[in-house]
């Protein structure tokens, strides 16, 4: 199982697409590691700098994250940068499935919870740890800490625990 804990990168925008997460010009790479320098290279978001990615392990964002292309290069580009968790209001279907297929977390929280997290934790040195067994997100900054429950389907949780869909499918089909 992967690591699901660390500093949070706040991306305050909806509809961040997979072309922004990893542009098509890098799809000619045939190793995941080669994608590392290009994560979020084309992101359109005021105040965002690619330097912000450094040392982050969790992305917190708004609605419809990962829309567009089916490229699994998007989760891979996150993974090779040490980001195994995205928390958002909603996802595009293929991106969400790709995350779980890779044994990574794409957690959905209601709009008001996401808004609350942005209001209270963005701009601070915030960390998040996922408590898988209890379906809890533990959020911590210098001046506060709290737990937020999340819902995850049995299939998705199994994929996270088994490290992805290939191993599971090989055993069961």
């Amino acid at each position: 199982m992967k690591e699901f804990s660390g500093k949070v990168l706040f991306l305050d925008r909806s509809d961040i697409n997979t072309d922004e997460i990893i542009p098509a010009r890098y799809l000619t790479e045939i190793t995941k590691e080669a994608l590392k320098p290009y994560l979020l290279e084309d992101l359109t978001l005021g105040g965002f700098s690619n330097e912000d990615i450094k040392d982050k392990a969790v992305i917190l964002t708004r609605a419809n994250f990962g829309c567009g292309s089916s490229r699994e290069h998007a989760p891979w580009a996150l993974e090779v940068n040490g980001i195994n968790v995205v928390i958002a209001e909603s996802y595009a279907r293929i991106f969400r499935q790709n995350m779980y297929n890779c044994g990574m977390f794409a957690i959905e929280l209601p709009t008001d919870k996401i808004q609350y997290l942005f209001e209270n934790y963005a701009g601070k040195d915030t960390s998040i740890t996922i408590d898988i067994d209890n379906n809890k997100i533990i959020v911590t900054s210098s001046d506060q800490s709290e737990e937020i429950n999340f819902k995850v389907g049995e299939f998705d949780k199994t994929l996270v625990k088994e490290g992805g869909w290939v191993g599971y499918a090989d055993k069961n089909y």
């Binding site: 089916s70 490229r71 699994e72 989760p75 293929i94 991106f95 499935q97 790709n98 297929n101 890779c102 299939f155 992805g164 869909w165 290939v166 499918a169 090989d170 089909y173």
Partner: peptide, 18 residues
Amino acid sequence: AGVGTTDLEVGILKGVCA
């Protein structure tokens, strides 16, 4: 349906998708 590389990989190997 469009899928990612892992779903494709399992499709190639096992002929199934979830």
